[in-house]
């Protein structure tokens, strides 16, 4: 295998995903993610000479809607699941810059 994810990288990804992992969970993730990486290593073995790089596997393009306004949801409904709200707005804890 060419590349293995280090615990440090896993900690970084966990931080990006806002996941607070215990050390045991980190080790578990290390195992799972490296298994996954190994699957991709196998895919790399395929000869893709002459195959256009693509982001989508189906040859479907241009799925559009026309620029027409439809009714939105009522404000109460949008806010229905908000843990906290005030004057029609969602309220959230202030994001403290580090």
């Amino acid at each position: 295998m060419a590349q293995r994810l280090t615990l440090e990288q896993i900690a970084h990804v966990a931080r990006l995903a806002r996941l607070a992992l215990s050390e045991q969970e980190m080790r578990q993730m290390e195992k799972h993610l490296n298994n996954l990486m190994a699957q991709f290593e196998r895919l790399q073995e395929l000869d893709t000479t002459g195959v256009e790089p693509t982001a989508h596997s189906f040859p479907v393009y241009n799925v559009f809607r026309e620029d027409v306004v439809q009714p939105s949801l009522p404000q109460e409904e949008i806010l229905a699941n908000a843990p906290d709200q005030r004057d029609g707005c969602f309220t959230v804890p202030i994001i403290v810059e580090e």
Partner: peptide
């Protein structure tokens, strides 16, 4: 545009929040 990028909600300025 009249509507938003990926849905049919109106694209406008001002107004009541979250409407």
């Amino acid at each position: 545009t009249d509507s938003k990028m990926f849905c049919s909600c109106a694209n406008a300025f001002g107004g009541e929040p979250n409407t």
